[in-house]
Amino acid sequence: MEIPITGLLFHSEGSGSEHHHSLLITSWDGRPVRVHVHPISGDTSFDVGHYHHYAGTTEPAPSGVPHVHRYHVETSFNDQHVHYIQGTTGPAIPLPGGGHYHDFAGYTTVNGRIPHSHRYGGRTGNEED
């Protein structure tokens, strides 16, 4: 038996084992699968005399099931350079009034006149359709 599905294919930059594709199913057997994203923003740690701000949105993920989100964000331009932030959030954490958020944390890429990275972390905003 064949079940028609549609979806989005995400391409991850990288080489070797860092390169991969992810499929996000948007319909199953003609029925839509609801997806959502989350806003993500904050400030990095203060290192080598400066910090960076970052803001963006997560990749889409299905609603109503256990899930995580991938994210890719470029920091603000400070001290003559930027850093890149990427990772995967933790699992969904319900909010008392409905909806949910995700925790995220990690280290930026290394860059700058004095090569360095920054710590970052926080919670996403509530889900957005």
Rank of each mutant, 00 (worst) to 15 (best):
I5C: 10
T6N: 08
G7A: 07
L9E: 11
L9W: 06
F10D: 14
H11C: 05
E13D: 15
E13F: 11
G14R: 11
G14I: 15
G14D: 07
S15G: 15
G16K: 07
G16Y: 05
S17V: 07
S17M: 03
E18F: 13
H19Y: 11
H19V: 08
L24H: 05
S27W: 01
S27H: 03
W28L: 14
D29L: 00
R31Y: 02
R31P: 00
V33Q: 02
R34E: 15
V35R: 01
P39W: 02
I40N: 03
I40F: 07
I40R: 01
I40T: 06
I40Y: 06
T44P: 05
S45L: 04
F46W: 09
F46T: 00
G49H: 00
G49S: 00
G49F: 00
H53Q: 11
T57N: 12
T58Q: 04
P60S: 14
A61Y: 04
A61N: 07
P62T: 11
P62A: 12
S63H: 08
S63W: 07
S63C: 11
G64E: 02
V68L: 11
R70A: 09
Y71Q: 12
Y71K: 11
V73Q: 01
E74I: 08
E74R: 13
T75S: 13
F77D: 15
Q80K: 08
H81Y: 08
Y84P: 00
I85N: 01
G87W: 04
G87T: 12
G87V: 09
T89W: 04
P91S: 14
P91T: 13
P91A: 14
A92R: 02
A92Y: 02
P94S: 12
L95M: 13
P96N: 08
P96Q: 07
P96R: 10
G97Q: 14
G97L: 06
G97H: 14
G98K: 08
G98R: 06
G99Q: 05
G99P: 09
H100R: 09
Y101I: 15
Y101V: 15
A105I: 06
G106W: 02
Y107D: 12
T109Y: 06
V110N: 02
G112R: 02
G112S: 03
R113E: 03
H116N: 03
H116T: 01
R119Y: 12
G121F: 12
G121C: 14
G122N: 09
G122T: 06
R123E: 13
R123G: 11
T124G: 04
G125K: 08
G125I: 07
